[in-house]
């Protein structure tokens, strides 16, 4: 779980100095930690209490605390399909993203030569424009009159009245596109560290390029795969913009529900319990995944 590599031993030898440095360490750490405690930890704990309020209260009249655990049961029975859909969309988007980003990261790390930095800039550059504008551009591209839909209709992949916009395909495509750099950059970082001599050694030992990749390059790039998939999957689970702009209520994800429960219905107990379920599921999945992948270094 811990994201830190084992800490280097403190260098100071004299006892007095060690304790002074320890004090300085605290001093450096405390302002940031306080910020996280007050504006992240405390609200999350408070969210937990909010999730147990009596749901018959309202935003205007206030809520009473009745430790109403049934809020969770209601939230799950009402919206379990949204949870399933969110994790399915986010999971598919993560896999597609990995499949697209890996060749790109590989090409930059191994084939780009002196164009490496320039290509990296090109990878990040599209993401300097606003996330919403990019998603709106996709809405135009995937629209019924757009080039992609008519092309797919011409080659008969889509029926003549078939649509791309307002389907799960469009939502997943949007998720894939918007989280690409979070996948590509960690992948590139770990592929770039791979010692080329190891791959050459595999070739010298008569491994085919494919076997060399499967047994040497890919395993060495696993830390990048792990952090890339996490950095893509986590935000994709909670995203609601792609579902809203590229889909219809039929494609809505749990983020859409949380957003509307909070901002339009002001149903705080429901919104809070949904948020906590989402957070808990994501954290559990992340921890299991990290355990399984066996990497300690997170990002």
């Amino acid at each position: 779980m811990s994201a830190a590599p084992p800490s280097p031993a403190p260098r100071a030898a004299v006892d007095g100095e060690t304790s002074r440095r320890r004090g300085l360490g605290w001093l450096l750490l405390v302002p940031g930690m306080l910020w996280l405690a007050v504006f992240f930890l405390f609200p999350t704990i408070q969210l937990f209490f909010t999730s147990l309020y009596d749901p018959s209260g309202s935003y205007e009249q206030g809520y009473t605390m009745t430790w109403h655990v049934m809020n969770y049961v209601d939230a799950v029975t009402d919206t379990w399909n949204l949870f399933v859909r969110s994790f399915a969309y986010a999971g598919i988007a993560t896999v597609v993203c990995l499949a697209l980003s890996y060749p790109l990261a590989y090409a930059i790390a191994f084939k780009a030569g002196r164009w490496k930095n320039f290509l990296l800039v090109l990878v990040i550059a599209p993401f300097f424009t606003s996330f919403l504008l990019r998603t709106l551009a996709w809405r135009t591209i995937l629209s019924d009159q757009g080039p992609v839909t008519s092309f797919l209709q011409t080659i008969a992949v889509l029926p003549d009245d078939g649509r791309l916009l307002a389907t799960p395909v469009a939502v997943i495509a949007g998720l894939v596109y918007n989280f690409m750099p979070f996948m590509t950059l960690p992948l590139y970082a770990s592929l770039d560290k791979v010692d080329h001599r190891l791959i050459e050694a595999a070739g010298d030992l008569y491994s085919s390029p494919i076997a060399g990749f499967r047994r040497v390059t890919f395993p060495l790039s696993l830390p990048g795969v792990v952090s890339g998939t996490l950095l893509t999957f986590i935000p994709a689970c909670g995203d609601y913009i792609n579902a809203e702009l590229l889909g219809t209520p039929k494609q809505y994800m749990v983020g859409n529900r949380i957003q509307s429960a909070f901002l339009t219905e002001h149903n705080y107990p429901l919104a809070a319990s949904l948020s906590l379920i989402l957070m808990a599921v994501v954290v559990v999945m992340v921890v299991l995944y990290i355990r399984r992948a066996g990497t300690e270094d997170l990002v």
Binding site: L36, G238, A272
Partner: peptide, 19 residues
Amino acid sequence: LIFLPMATPEVVMGSSLLA
């Protein structure tokens, strides 16, 4: 505590702060 915000979907952080 540093890792947790990165594993928390934004919608959860936003809603808890608003609350």
